[in-house]
């Protein structure tokens, strides 16, 4: 850090305290709920009386395993669809200087500006009344993909702007067809960003409530179970459920962080 004047120091210190307070604000409730999931006296857990009861109750909850499986399936389906569409679109937009790229970029980012509940209810009405598709996993995956696609697109686009397209041109000059060029040159370089996009859309769909709830019918998923439980007042099983999901999310985010770093390193070789 460069030398700072006393006046600037005051600014930096106050900004830093805002940042620290933001971290506390964001993480304290999450860590508190994890802590509470391990104690018997959940209302005022000081001093704590440790117990596994909430995990045992969660484990024997009839919908839990099914919900976990369904959330996984929705996550994987959405992740696969989103990352394939997003990778293909990002490559197309950056590789070919089409006049239409602005229009397509706007279309791909537009779901970010549509409220989740609106995507939920409009998909419900469209799938059920026009496509004749009842609420099920397919319906939920299709609806979730619209929103997750935008996030996947952003993740890949952010990394791909550093990609040197002359590598592709070099491959083409030596006679590689576009498909071969993709499999042997582009994909081996950009795979961390595609996997990153998959993981981001996986997490979003896995945890989604307002889109999934309206499109999954009567099939349980973890967020809809949590929503149902919460409506009848907080029950301690919810804490252990939250801890399980938070653990999974943070595990994936750590992978994601290393993927981003790896992406930087791999694309850094191009020396632009």
């Amino acid at each position: 850090m460069a030398a700072v004047s006393p006046k600037e120091r005051v600014v930096v210190v106050s900004q830093s305290s805002l940042l620290v307070f933001l971290y506390i604000f964001l993480y304290f409730p999450i860590f508190f709920i994890i802590y509470v999931s391990f104690v018997d006296n959940t209302v005022w857990p000081f001093p704590p009386v440790f117990t596994w009861e909430w995990y045992e109750r969660l484990w024997i909850m009839s919908d839990f395993h099914l919900g976990l499986l369904n959330s996984f399936l929705i996550g994987i389906g959405t992740g696969a669809l989103s990352s394939i569409f997003a990778a293909s679109a990002a490559i197309g937009l950056l590789k070919y200087q089409s006049r239409l790229r602005g229009l397509f970029a706007v279309l791909y980012l537009s779901p970010l500006f549509v409220a989740g509940i609106l995507i939920g209810i409009s998909s419900l009405m469209f799938h059920r009344n026009i496509l004749g598709l009842p609420g099920n996993l397919t319906s939920a995956i299709l609806a979730n993909t619209t929103q997750a696609l935008s996030f996947a697109f952003l993740v890949i686009l952010a990394q791909l702007t550093r990609y040197d397209w002359r590598m592709d041109e070099a491959a083409m000059v030596f006679g590689a067809r576009p498909a071969r060029c993709f499999w042997e040159v582009t994909l081996p370089t950009i795979w961390p960003s595609v996997l990153g996009a998959f993981l981001v859309s996986f997490i979003l769909a896995f945890n989604n409530l307002e889109v999934t709830f309206y499109n999954v019918g009567a099939i349980p998923t973890l967020p809809t179970i949590a929503w149902g439980t919460l409506r009848h007042g907080i029950e301690p099983e919810l804490y252990s459920l939250a801890t399980v999901i938070n653990g999974l999310v943070f595990f994936i985010l750590i992978i994601l962080f290393f993927l981003i770093r790896l992406g930087f390193v791999r694309l850094g070789y191009r020396g632009q």
Partner: peptide
């Protein structure tokens, strides 16, 4: 042609969004 390849890469996702985002909004 580059335009054809551009279309091949960007259209699938765009069509998906038209069918599963724009049409539902029109339907409501």
């Amino acid at each position: 042609s580059p335009n054809f390849r551009f279309a091949m890469l960007t259209l699938p996702g765009a069509l998906f969004l038209l069918i599963f985002l724009v049409l539902p909004l029109i339907s409501i």
